[in-house]
Computed example of a mutant assay.
Amino acid sequence: MNATTLPRLAVTAGEPAGVGPELLARLAASDLPADLVAITDRGLLERAAAACRLHLTILEDDGTRQAYRTPGSLRLRHVPLGATERPGTPDPANARHVLDVLGAAADGCLEGRFDAVVTGPVQKSVINDAGMPFRGHTEFFAERAGADVVMMLASPELRVTLATTHLALAAVPVAITAPLLERTLRIVRDALVRRFGIAAPRIAVLGLNPHAGEHGHMGREEIDTIIPLLERLRGEGMDLLGPLPADTAFVPAMRPRYDAVLAMYHDQALPVLKSEAFDRTVNVTLGLPFIRTSVDHGTALDLAGTGRADPASLFAATRLAIDLAQRGDHA
């Protein structure tokens, strides 16, 4: 990308029977300043546009960069469906299509043909039902790129990262180890510098237990694991706050003190974020050698085919991808 061309974004529709294709059609109709390249099936995109009562100009992607995109237009890399979609009813016959789309997007980013990838929601269960083990976008891209990654959920007001993600609550205490937290904090700090342009990032670290353990009276993970690690990393110059009690870490008076939060588990911090900014929250994968943002919602099968799905989260994910691509790498 250079100063005279638009950020070139690969955009995936996710589950063909979900709302992703319709959200992609609405994104193409917008005036967001990006060179949008849809990686999907042409017929799927055309049917989604018709469901939204939109007329799109769909051009084959020739790989060139452009300085302007007319609203209502986008370029396409065609990846054929295995079977014609039935809105609201995922078909395992399309599992290979979904994975081929993600592979094409990742490879295009790794080869420098795209500045970022923006992903729509997938239906993990139907991919696994097709006999293709799949844990999610984050894990797929991490394996494709050979990278250690961290999940961040970001809104305009708050950035939250996770030490553990989709893990049963009973398994979390055993998973919270010093090596895990060190790896996670290093990835988060590096991404805040390189991707977000924060020269000296401040990271708030939550405790695992209520009241951050209450000096050992409500659990010893803070004393035995978290505090010693934070002290060691502070000795290297990292600006780390905590461990903080999760019930007070997000109050307005605390937020100016940090640039991002590291939570110990999925539901420790995400309810705060989603309750105040659900339609403006973006999933960002930190640690990849390319930019990846995503909607922070599911496939909404009950709305598929109606043309009524709200594109706000996809717009937010695209805006953040544009911003990060334009900032470049600050390393």
Rank of each mutant, 00 (worst) to 15 (best):
D247W: 08
D247C: 07
D247R: 09
T248E: 08
A249P: 14
A249W: 14
F250W: 08
V251Y: 14
P252C: 06
P252D: 14
P252S: 08
A253I: 13
A253M: 12
R255P: 12
R255W: 13
R255V: 13
P256T: 04
R257A: 14
Y258V: 02
Y258A: 00
D259Q: 07
D259I: 09
D259P: 03
A260D: 03
V261M: 11
V261S: 10
L262W: 09
L262H: 06
L262T: 08
L262A: 08
A263G: 15
A263Y: 12
A263T: 13
A263R: 10
A263P: 14
M264V: 10
M264A: 10
M264D: 11
Y265C: 05
Y265N: 04
Y265M: 05
H266S: 06
H266K: 10
H266T: 05
Q268W: 04
A269V: 04
L270M: 13
L270E: 06
P271H: 07
L273H: 12
L273K: 06
L273P: 12
K274W: 07
K274D: 05
K274T: 04
S275L: 15
S275P: 05
E276S: 15
E276Q: 15
A277I: 05
A277T: 10
F278T: 04
F278E: 09
F278R: 03
R280I: 08
T281I: 06
V282A: 03
V282R: 00
N283D: 13
N283A: 13
N283R: 09
N283H: 12
N283L: 11
V284T: 13
V284Y: 13
L286P: 08
L286Y: 09
G287L: 05
L288W: 10
L288E: 10
L288Q: 14
P289S: 13
F290C: 07
F290G: 07
I291N: 04
I291A: 04
T293C: 06
T293V: 07
S294L: 06
S294T: 10
S294Y: 11
S294P: 11
D296C: 01
H297M: 02
H297F: 04
G298R: 00
G298N: 01
T299K: 01
T299H: 01
T299N: 03
A300R: 01
A300L: 04
A300K: 00
A300F: 05
A300P: 00
A300Y: 05
L301R: 01
L301Y: 12
D302A: 11
D302G: 04
D302E: 15
D302C: 02
L303R: 14
L303K: 13
A304E: 00
G305L: 03
G305Y: 01
T306D: 03
T306L: 07
T306P: 00
A309Q: 00
D310L: 10
